[in-house]
């Protein structure tokens, strides 16, 4: 039932200017570009560092290296998931094994898609500002059709969230063993909370918990869950940025403590 063009398109208003917007429409895509590019640079550097991701004294594990799944991992840094992977070649770090999951989750996230389509791909850079491309097929065909796998990454992201929660719990480890609290433990807790805020506000999550139903009245519990997820979903963009910052801050903090550049600020033991 697709409309077939019966007549050639009639002319639009002949307006010479490509856009008549007078506000600073380029500011938001520029800031987004800088933010995302900064994150990519940090992530790339970090996965090649392959050191200083585990603080044995306080049980701090840097989020970029969690879970640490190979026999090349620093002693003590692998936890309940063990070391299913053998010794890695010297150019490979254990971070590379797990990065595909959170990375793929964010790369296919509806919010991040909006942000990089606008800021990297200029498609469009801002509303009523022309698209930077001659042809456009959107997400109708390969490769962008693959964005539909976001659902799979969401399932994986729930596991990642659990692992980061575990990391936050074990970080309450004192110098002399037993319980302890340091600034690092608090940072890892805040990071885990923000990651959950981001993960549970996912549009796929919203659909799965209840959005796909037609009769909420027949499923009161799922309706309630859908409502709660909706509250996070409204702030999904905010959580996307906050959790991206928090993961970098947490990772860099553990990196600095592990390398001895700074001392962990101990609050208790």
């Amino acid at each position: 039932m697709t409309t077939t063009a019966t007549t050639p398109p009639r002319p639009r208003a002949a307006i010479a200017e490509r856009t008549l917007r007078t506000d600073r429409w380029w500011l938001a895509p520029l800031l987004t570009f800088l933010g995302l590019a900064g994150f990519l640079v940090y992530a790339t550097v970090r996965i090649f560092v392959n050191d200083n991701y585990w603080v044995e004294e306080f049980h701090y594990l840097a989020p970029f290296y969690s879970p640490c799944l190979s026999e090349s991992c620093a002693p003590g840094s692998s936890h309940f998931l063990g070391q299913p992977f053998p010794q890695l070649p010297s150019w490979m770090s254990p971070a590379m094994l797990v990065l595909a999951l959170p990375g793929g989750f964010r790369a296919t996230c509806y919010y991040y898609r909006k942000s990089y389509y606008r800021s990297f791909w200029l498609s469009p850079p801002a509303c009523a500002v022309p698209d930077g491309h001659k042809k456009y097929t959107g997400e109708t065909r390969f490769p962008l059709l693959i964005q539909n796998v976001h659902r799979y990454f969401f399932y994986a992201a729930v596991l990642v969230g659990l692992v980061l929660t575990y990391d936050a719990v074990i970080s309450f480890h004192g110098k002399e063993g037993g319980f302890g609290i340091g600034l690092g433990s608090l940072i890892l807790v805040v990071n885990a909370v923000l990651i959950w805020g981001y993960t549970l506000g996912c549009h796929s999550c919203r659909n799965i918990v209840g959005g796909r139903l037609t009769h909420f009245s027949k499923h009161p519990i799922r309706y309630w869950m859908w409502t709660q997820v909706g509250k996070l979903n409204k702030r999904h963009q905010l959580f996307a940025w906050l959790s991206m910052f928090s993961v970098v801050i947490a990772d860099a903090y553990v990196w600095m403590v592990a390398s001895g550049a700074i001392n962990d600020l101990r609050i208790f033991n």
């Binding site: 389509y117 469009p124 509303c127 456009y136 097929t137 109708t140 962008l144």
Partner: peptide
């Protein structure tokens, strides 16, 4: 038929 896949969720309609 409606071409939902063309939309790249850049949200200008919402704006």
């Amino acid at each position: 038929e409606q071409g939902l896949g063309f939309c790249n969720i850049t949200k200008c309609c919402t704006e």
